[in-house]
């Protein structure tokens, strides 16, 4: 028996909105630790890694490890039926081929349930090695989304370069070039508005705008985003999901032929 209850169903809906551009279908691995998902986009350039801890749920029960393959478009349809303030309860029997989502309104005056068919998906789990990153940038997630959106107009790629002075985002293309520089600004009163850089050594890497733009669909999940970079290693873009876990995106850098 698997059962997970989340008072803020909108959090799960935001997670879904954040990954549905990259993934058509994915397997949710349920265990007593919580719900995990790891999947590559169809071009195998980026990797999505979701971790929702069991103790972040309002109720969590998982008697037997369970892998639920889901079509994310279908799952999106189910969550479209939920109200913004609804509580969601996910339920599946052991070895079941369906999962049930029950939505309850705040006042308990409306209860709806939707049963969705599960899929058997080929699972390919990648081992992500521990990396000592050259730099770790934390910045407001809205600012990151804005910069990626703005610079995407100039070219297909964005160079992110980080030094002790700050972080610079650059793009160039047919119409010209664009550069955005951010200095470190520690705001002790409003931590979420700070830009902080933890630098071991300067690094500059190039990434495809298309993927960076997709990652920023996770902006509603978190005030801050964490970018971890190291030469010849995929970029990690991490959004903390308050009290529940995190959503990470990994993106292979563009390199010279």
């Amino acid at each position: 028996m698997f059962e997970a209850r989340l008072v803020n169903s909108s959090t799960f809906r935001k997670v879904l909105d954040a990954i549905k551009d990259l993934l058509n279908e994915a397997s949710f691995d349920c265990s007593e630790n919580g719900i995990q998902l790891q999947a590559m986009d169809s071009s195998h350039v980026s990797l999505v890694s979701l971790n929702l801890k069991s103790d972040g749920f309002d109720k969590f029960r998982c008697d037997r490890n369970l892998t639920m393959g889901m079509n994310l478009t279908s799952l999106g349809k189910v969550f479209k039926c939920s109200g913004a303030d609804d509580t969601v309860t996910m339920k599946a029997q052991d070895y079941a081929d369906t999962v049930t989502f029950m939505f309850e309104s705040k006042k308990q005056d409306k209860i709806s349930d939707y049963e969705m068919k599960l899929m058997n998906l080929d699972q390919e789990h990648l081992g992500i090695p521990d990396t000592e990153f050259s730099c770790i940038i934390k910045m407001p997630s809205i600012e990151f989304a804005r910069i990626i959106r703005d610079l995407s107009q100039f070219g297909e790629s964005i160079v992110i370069s980080c030094t002790k002075e700050g972080v610079k985002f650059s793009a160039q293309g047919d119409i010209g070039t664009g550069n955005v520089k951010l200095a470190q600004t520690h705001n002790f009163d409003k931590e979420e508005e700070s830009v902080t850089i933890d630098l071991q050594e300067p690094v500059a890497l190039t990434f495809a705008c298309q993927y960076l733009n997709s990652f920023t669909k996770a902006t509603p999940l978190s005030n801050q985003v964490k970018l971890s970079m190291c030469e010849n290693v995929p970029l990690v873009v991490e959004y903390q999901i308050p009290e529940l876990g995190h959503l990470r995106f990994y993106l292979a850098p563009k390199i010279e032929e």
């Binding site: 992500i128 495809a208 990994y250 390199i255 032929e257």
Partner: peptide, 14 residues
């Protein structure tokens, strides 16, 4: 020009 490797080239299959 720049080229993009697969994420699989960085993270090996378990």
């Amino acid at each position: 020009s720049k080229h993009q490797k697969s994420i699989r080239d960085y993270f090996k299959t378990n």
